[in-house]
């Protein structure tokens, strides 16, 4: 069943580097990460790679395989032709540390800018009541394993380093959407989404959704609904007028349903 495959692996650091050629044995049922491990054990013991669970649950082994952002542990070798040369590079949006390992601190910095979950102040632990239909939308986003492939793929930062200041990428806009749809959250994050996290940079070209290993519908279920909710508040004159009217006539159920 086994065969010898041709690999090109990018090796280097922030000073420079190049694709190096390797011939490696491949066995039935293996994934790209297995091959990288075999390289480490047999040919390149200091080949740097980040990984943990090897089951697509932790989101550590993000890289680009034949130019496509992927989890190496979820890329089966059987999807390639045995004659094909397989190229592995680090994620190209984040600074490289060494070989396949990149500095993903951008993501953690952005995570810290998202205003935290804020439940009603008088609600005691154990008294939280939420209907399943109300938590399902946010639950989808909480499937995120923070592999950061979406942020890596988004052209707004991938091709434009200077946008990193103003744009948090799909991962954290989705986090804002998650909190905005949380049934017991009391904070309106719509201004923050636009002003601090750059929702307007998103041109919904859906690459985040395409690369998501968890198959979360980031664009359709998080980003676009968030854009629509922002439009409700910031861009829709009629809606603003009608909510003023509801406030004035006391028909606004704001205290009971903090966000509609």
């Amino acid at each position: 069943m086994g065969y010898s495959a041709k690999f090109k692996v990018w090796r280097g650091d922030d000073e420079g580097g190049a694709l190096e050629d390797f011939d490696v044995d491949v066995n039935e049922g293996e994934v790209v990460l297995d091959i990288v491990h075999r390289l480490q054990a047999t040919q390149a013991p200091d080949l740097a790679v980040r990984w943990n669970c090897k089951a697509g649950k932790c989101g550590s082994c993000s890289a680009e395989v034949n130019g496509k952002p992927r989890l190496m542990c979820m890329t089966r070798m059987s999807t390639f032709d045995p004659a094909e040369t397989i190229t592995i590079t680090p994620m190209r949006t984040f600074p490289v540390i060494r070989d396949l390992v990149t500095d993903v601190s951008y993501n953690y910095t952005k995570a810290r800018m998202v205003p935290a979950f804020a439940p009603p102040a008088d609600l005691e632990p154990g008294d939280y009541r939420m209907a399943q239909v109300d938590v399902e939308r946010s639950q989808e986003f909480r499937k995120c394993i923070e592999c950061f492939l979406c942020n890596n793929t988004c052209h707004a930062v991938r091709d434009h380093e200077d946008n990193k200041d103003g744009f948090s990428g799909p991962r954290f806009l989705m986090r804002i959407a998650e909190l905005d749809m949380h049934p017991l959250d009391t904070v309106d994050r719509r201004d923050v989404a636009v002003e601090d996290h750059g929702l307007g940079y998103c041109n919904i070209t859906k690459c985040c959704t395409e690369v998501c290993p968890e198959h979360i519908h980031i664009t359709d279920n998080a980003l676009i609904p968030l854009k629509e909710r922002v439009a409700d508040k910031k861009y829709d004159p009629l809606f603003s007028v009608s909510s003023l009217f509801r406030k004035a006539t006391g028909r606004d159920k704001a205290p009971e349903t903090p966000k509609g």
Binding site: P69, N163, G200, Y201, V230, A231, Y235
Partner: peptide, 28 residues
């Protein structure tokens, strides 16, 4: 912008839908 995922776009600058005219798309 971009032509396909993980394919570089040819532009040096990108501002998304934050300015006129594209910000008008919010009136969909």
């Amino acid at each position: 912008s971009p032509p396909a995922c993980a394919v570089s776009e040819p532009h040096g600058k990108y501002t998304g839908e934050r300015r006129l005219p594209l910000i008008m798309n919010n009136l969909h």
